[in-house]
């Protein structure tokens, strides 16, 4: 009994229960159990980390009490920089680091604007979302750029960003797991994690206890920026090109992944396990329903419904355990 109570006192427990249920249901009820077929798992594992890695960062930022809607534009912006650097004859590795740096700078800009103007980040990053997309469209003329020749299939960088470990495990999953572990240590075991939670939960208290809350927020924005840069390179290498429509809609998908994972929209509440599961849950719902031959046009309705139900469930469990 005590164990059960303890289990439910973890906010991510509801996400875990639903996640396991989904996996079991889809494994049993998809025709020919195709859900757990190696091809399906490999396909899922190759694709979901594009958004998943960004969602991990968004989760940390949300715990800190802020949003970043600009990811939908920072991602293609970094992708454009990555492609452009390689076309300018820099090696893929150099271009990759430039892309991460640009991501960090765009995150820094989001952070500084939010902290200095004291405006809600929902507004400031909505602004930068549109601003960077506009700049990107003008600068790139929206023309796709092929980078296949710079990172041909089998080249070291291609293997690192879009290769396969074995038939089941594409390398993208490994990256997702690595980032989840790093951010988990940061959030739950590092003192900076305590500053993130305190800042998001009660900024005045954190400030009074001598935590530089503005700096903490700015760093969280930069973490999101760097992850966007990483995801941008990973996605472009897989696609073999830069495309101006990369990242469209990622901003709200990342937030719903975090919310499904039990992250509070008001900050201070959330866990890496929850965010990790949340980032997996949305693509699994999408994939599983299609595999169950649900008409594809209805998928959005299910994901919308799932998001609302998850929040209700989380709130319910929270009330029950307190």
């Amino acid at each position: 009994m005590n164990q059960t109570r303890r289990f439910y006192s973890f906010r991510s427990s509801s996400t875990l229960v639903v996640f396991v249920t989904l996996v079991v249901v889809f494994s049993i009820f998809t025709p020919n159990h195709i859900f757990i077929n190696e091809r399906n798992i490999a396909a899922l594992g190759k694709l979901f980390p594009d958004l998943g890695i960004i969602a991990l960062g968004i989760g940390v930022l949300m715990i800190c009490g802020e949003f970043d809607l600009s990811v939908g534009s920072v991602l293609p912006f970094c992708s454009f920089i990555f492609a452009q650097q390689m076309i300018a004859d820099f090696s893929p590795f150099v271009s990759f680091f430039v892309s991460l740096l640009v991501g960090a700078i765009l995150g820094l800009i989001n952070g500084i604007i939010t902290v200095k103007t004291k405006m809600p980040s929902f507004i400031t990053t909505l602004g930068t979302l549109m601003f960077w997309r506009g700049i990107l469209y003008v600068w790139s003329k929206m023309m796709p750029m092929s980078i296949r020749t710079f990172v041909p299939s089998g080249s070291p960088f291609q293997k690192l960003m879009a290769g396969n470990l074995n038939a089941y495990i594409p390398v993208q999953v490994i990256w997702f797991a690595i980032f989840a572990v790093i951010l988990s240590i940061l959030l739950h075991f590092h003192r900076f994690g305590n500053w993130i939670y305190s800042t998001g939960d009660n900024r005045d208290a954190a400030h009074a206890m001598g935590i530089r809350t503005d700096l903490v927020k700015i760093i969280c924005f930069m973490i999101v920026g760097v992850l966007c840069g990483f995801s941008a390179c990973m996605q472009s290498v897989r696609l073999g090109s830069f495309a101006a429509t990369q990242g469209v809609g990622f901003e709200f998908k990342a937030i719903s992944a975090c919310v499904i994972g039990g992250t509070s929209l008001r900050g201070g509440i959330g866990s890496m396990t929850g965010i990790f599961l949340g980032a997996l849950t949305i693509p699994i719902i999408d994939n599983g329903l299609i595999l169950m031959r649900v008409p594809v046009f209805a998928i959005s309705a299910f994901i919308g419904l799932a998001t609302i139900l998850f929040v209700l469930l989380n709130n319910y469990i929270e009330r029950k355990t307190r």
Binding site: T30, P31, I34, N37, R39, N40, A43, L44, L47, F48, D50, L51, Q235, L239, A243, T245, Q246, G247, V248, G249, F250, P283, D286, N287, I290, L291, M292, R293, V296, F297, I299, S300
Partner: peptide
């Protein structure tokens, strides 16, 4: 006729791969 999921490639690829596996 199926909903490809918009203009963002990862979404499109995910949708269509799932569809082909299911059908």
């Amino acid at each position: 006729i199926i909903d490809g999921g918009g203009l963002e490639m990862t979404t499109v690829e995910q949708r269509e791969t799932s569809y082909l596996l299911a059908h």
